[in-house]
Write a protein that binds this DNA or RNA. Structure first.
Length: 493
RNA sequence: GGCGCCGUACCCAAGUGGUAAGGGAGCAGUCUGCAAAACUGCGAUGCAGCGGUUCGAACCCGCUCGGCGCCUCCA
């Protein structure tokens, strides 16, 4: 039974869907005005894994994740670049899809955009005006927070406290400083849609209420997003949705923690962020960090806590995956004996599966789930020491495949990525690409096979000095050799 | 000022009242021409500190110290 930490109640709760065996979930996506950074990757990944695990547990999941494609920042970016808002949003939606694809984030059920739901947004705003939760002033429409008694329930704040801490200049047309815009009149040159209040565009918060209600109904199961969205975004969503419908909105609110750099939140204002494509595409990093490595790293800490991004952490993720793929390579080799009959293979696998499920049930405890996989890895290596049949090897590999799939790991046939961690000290001061890396990159597999064959010949002649020289040469290129008992040699880079 | 999160071995990191998972690094050993990999063994009498509740607390309560976040756009 899955338990989830629900921000709304501040407690871990057993997850029970509204409809048996069906889950409807909504996650706040991104505002498409720039490339995504690792923080966005973490959020997307956490909910991708939640979705995968719900499906693994037998639920049919309807997963909606929006694009905010009308917003001040988009308008600003378009003006800076002298292009239309549409071209800005199209560019970054495309980039988002590419980045998430590399990370192995599965496509969601629906990806609604704010601009495609203007009618829904206007309709919802009208409902709020009619019900007395909102008021129009000079073409703007505001939600009146003091009309909604439960305001602050999610973020555990009281209106009085918020008012005291308000740091923004208060718009005097607002009845309460915390009243927020549902609809904004457009200035000349800004995107605008006709509305009962004149030409304008939606405020930020209303789109998520309108789109989630449209695609999931007025009450649904899970609403997710980053912790920084709890206030004001999610608080406002609840006020809007519950105010309009009079019904419960989302039942479980799930929020992921931040990615940090040196214990500080990764953010644009601090300039301490790394974009996803920067990690995947820049020369030093492109062949070092794969989606799977980044995934493993991001899942190595519980989703609720902070996670520090560093070279060392990435390197550890890479090493850990390397250990798994070493095992998979061994499992791919033909088997010999039928295996010992101490603890049957299937019993060991089932025990690991039970540990894995128990960990995931416990509020998506991915570090503990990974520990279960590590335990299985260790046990499989022991089995291999005794001898495993080809069939058992396949059974073991399938077990890793099916459990790994829940985390989006272990889906490659073999470890075929060249990983080399190069320190990246400062954002604008990139180290040059070490020559050895370039050399290694230029070596084809046939080149390497040739060198390895040469070394095997030398070994046969007991010319160990020459053999060691060849091994040292390859090592300097980042290629590791492993002699097998049967006289063959395996290499990897 | 208000609200909240975090503090577990050299590093990363589980633990949600019953006596400290897992990984990495390190050291030692088995195997090997030597390595690598794999396997085996070693490692917190203690979980920031101080009190309290309890038969029993890393886990619950209070206070203190330290790190961070939100209260403005933010995953």
């Amino acid at each position: 039974m899955l338990k989830l930490f629900n921000t709304l109640t501040g407690r871990q709760e057993a997850f029970e869907p509204i409809e048996p065996q069906k889950v409807r979930m909504y996650v706040c996506g991104v505002t498409v005005y720039d490339y995504c950074h690792i923080g966005h990757a973490r959020s997307a990944l956490v909910f991708d894994v939640l979705r995968r695990y719900l499906e693994y547990s037998g639920y049919a999941v309807t997963f909606v994740k929006n694009f905010t494609d009308v917003d001040d920042k988009i308008i600003k970016r378009a003006n800076e670049q002298g292009v239309s808002c549409d071209s800005v949003t199209a560019k970054y939606i495309q980039a988002y899809r590419e980045d998430m694809g590399k990370l192995g984030i599965r496509a969601v059920t629906e990806e609604p955009r704010a601009t495609e739901h203007i009618a829904d947004i206007i309709q919802l705003t009208e409902r709020l005006v009619t019900k007395g939760f909102a008021y129009a002033v000079d073409g703007d429409v505001y939600f009146e927070v003091s009309k909604y008694p439960e305001y602050g329930r999610l973020s555990k704040r009281r209106l009085d406290d918020l008012q005291a801490g308000a740091r923004v200049d208060v718009d005097e047309r607002k009845r309460h400083p915390m009243d927020f815009a549902l609809w904004k009149s457009s200035k000349p040159g800004e995107p605008a849609w006709e509305s009962p209040w004149g030409p304008g565009r939606p405020g930020w918060h209303i789109e998520c209420s309108a789109m989630s209600i449209r695609h999931l109904g007025e009450t649904f199961d899970i609403h997710g997003g980053g912790m920084d969205l709890i206030f004001p975004h999610h608080e406002n969503e609840i006020a809007q949705s519950c105010g309009a419908t009079g019904k419960e909105f989302a039942r479980y609110w799930v929020h992921n923690g931040f990615v940090q750099i040196n214990k500080e939140k990764m953010s644009k204002s601090l300039g301490n962020f790394f974009t996803i494509r920067e990690i995947f595409e820049k020369s030093e990093w492109s062949e070092e960090v794969t989606g799977e490595i980044l995934r493993y790293f991001l899942l190595s800490t519980h989703y609720h806590g902070p996670l520090d991004f560093s070279d060392q952490a990435i390197k550890e993720a890479k090493n850990a995956l390397n250990g798994f793929y070493d095992l998979f390579n061994r499992l791919n080799e033909p088997g010999k004996t039928g295996g010992g009959d101490g603890d049957p293979l299937t019993a060991v696998i089932e025990r690991a599966r039970a540990s894995f499920v128990q960990a995931m049930d416990n509020d998506l405890n991915t570090p503990a789930a990974i520990a279960a996989l590590q335990g299985l890895r260790s046990n499989m290596n022991k089995f291999l020491g005794v001898g495993l049949s080809t069939e058992d090897r396949q059974t073991a590999r399938r077990a890793f495949g099916s459990l790994g799939a829940v985390l989006g790991l272990f889906q490659l046939d073999r470890w075929d990525f060249n990983v080399r961690i190069v320190s990246k000290p400062a954002h604008s001061d990139l180290e040059t690409f070490p020559p050895t890396v370039i050399a290694a990159k230029q070596m084809t597999e046939a080149d390497i096979d040739g060198k390895v064959a040469e070394r095997i010949e030398a070994k046969k002649k007991r010319d160990f000095k020459r053999a060691d020289n060849i091994r040292a040469e390859l090592k300097s290129l980042g290629i590791a050799l492993e002699d097998k008992p049967d006289g063959t040699t395996r290499w990897k880079r």
